[in-house]
Design a protein around this nucleic acid. Sequence first.
DNA 1: CTGAAAGCGCTTACAG
DNA 2: CTGAAAGCGCTTACAG
Lengths: 337, 337
Amino acid sequence: MVNMRDVAHRAGVSIATVSFVLNGTKPVTAATRARVEQSMADLGYRRNVVARALASRRTHIIAMAYPALEHRFGMSTAEFFTSAAEAARKEDYHLVLWPVGNDGVELRELLGQGLVDGVVLMEVQLDDPRVGILRQTGTPFAMIGRTSELEGLSHVDIDFDATVEEAVKHLHGLGHRRLVLVSGDLDDPRFHAYGPWVRTEDAYRRVTAEYGLETVVLPCSDTTRAGQDVTERLIREYPEATAILVLNEYAALGVVSALNRMGRAVPDEFSVLPLLMVPETAALTDPELTMMRTPGPELGQLGTEALIRQLEGADPLPPQMVPAKLHPGGTTAAPRA
Amino acid sequence: MVNMRDVAHRAGVSIATVSFVLNGTKPVTAATRARVEQSMADLGYRRNVVARALASRRTHIIAMAYPALEHRFGMSTAEFFTSAAEAARKEDYHLVLWPVGNDGVELRELLGQGLVDGVVLMEVQLDDPRVGILRQTGTPFAMIGRTSELEGLSHVDIDFDATVEEAVKHLHGLGHRRLVLVSGDLDDPRFHAYGPWVRTEDAYRRVTAEYGLETVVLPCSDTTRAGQDVTERLIREYPEATAILVLNEYAALGVVSALNRMGRAVPDEFSVLPLLMVPETAALTDPELTMMRTPGPELGQLGTEALIRQLEGADPLPPQMVPAKLHPGGTTAAPRA
DNA sequence: CTGAAAGCGCTTACAG
DNA sequence: CTGAAAGCGCTTACAG
């Protein structure tokens, strides 16, 4: 490979000068700059990022740490990954994928290697051991999600309050007065402190109270089967319901398929509105789901940008709360008279 | 951070010796080894991978290059990513995500940086410009998928022949004699040289001929809607069919929902068998799909291992063709008498 | 504005 | 079996 010495030699300057024009770190006269640039072009020079990393103590690599085992891997995770990778590349960073346990042991191990400048943390728990380790080691990081205490922590997250508000407003506006939330299963030990579920439930209780509606919440794991089962229970226990909000993606599919199977017309008898969904999944039901679209691509990008700003010492990105937005579909309508 | 000099100093040896015990590259007496290891433990030493990379000319980083724009991003892609990242970590490698265009321009740019030891190529086209660039630059690589000519190229892929064989055998064994393949849409310019579609069709023509069956193939894009539309056409044009094989994931969902909607009982009137599917998706229909399960996790892992073997100079992993395997479900049965 | 030189933290011939 | 030293390809004070 051609290196800086080759470039410097051909341009008749020192390697320091090549470095200065490459990085714009010191003023260089137009003439020498031109010579150096010509020389780089002639030789097809590309700077070695490993050497730069060692010398500058900045690798321009960031890690996305995700809990490999604890969480199911859905479409939104894929959206996080790809949008984060693209955002990183745009800013001249690389993104590595770190599957790490929630206890933080592996994370500490990996940080010690000195490979990355910072970390984007996915699937943050309300009280997350990984945060402590990142702080101890002085590693810059940004969270997609939120711990309970946030003092000074860089983060982006779904705006669950606004999401639930818009969802309830939509259904209320259509005339629905008897809603049910099919939520997550907080009794599952892996999820008892899972922010999205806790926050959605909290928001739902608040919003229904504000609207003067009864608050009915049914726990449900995020599988099609569980969604089907909870629908049977719902129809048995709350036959007067006319609209169902569903927190989780696959559970929502189960709800619709169970209603179809039981001959309960959607949306004539029941409106169904998922709160966190991607279009690919929404298109799978018949009729297609009206949904609150998960802002996965935005969050992956914003989380990465928040981290890179820290690394570059730019103005910090203030915490960003992005609501899921209502996407029209065929599963919500006015309730039957 | 504590470095090798600190460790060497505390153990009363040279940094070379520390390096030898760390890497096992030279014999060291048990006594010195013990002293060095104790010293590392005492100081909590962790080797700096950037310095190692520069000195050894091996970064222990591999890239997964995927076409950001050209391909839809489904569950199997997410499976590739995570299984590849986990396989890499197990072998003490890091995996970076490179969203690159199919023309290879960005790929060449990134390779020039010297960050990675090798590349795993996803969504390989039959004639892929990226392969030429990897060869030119002398970059080790492994493909998930196959180009048309494969001489000496390290690759893993779905075994489309075996997959189609098992699928047809399953249906034939149940008594079906009138099959239809709902394939991909090779007229779509983005996919006219898309290996999985081309190879599946070829295999299907071969296998049906072997069984002495009529070969009926309907093109169909990979969306629920397209699957629904093609089903209407199928029923109009091939009313005598009793079993439908569906190449693509979302199209298969459309096929089942259209049959349900038209009152055609599944599996009593029609058996439906998707050829590339993940369990999460198969669970969405009613009844649950019998499927050929895409070997995404295996391929992500094998592709990564194939690359790492090359890098370590171990015996090369021979090309691995992994068939999708039959998973029982509720959508195949004997045809009506 | 430009250059000589030290240094980033390792690996690896080479010598003993 | 162990060590002194060169070198990986850059960045960055420091001096001029």
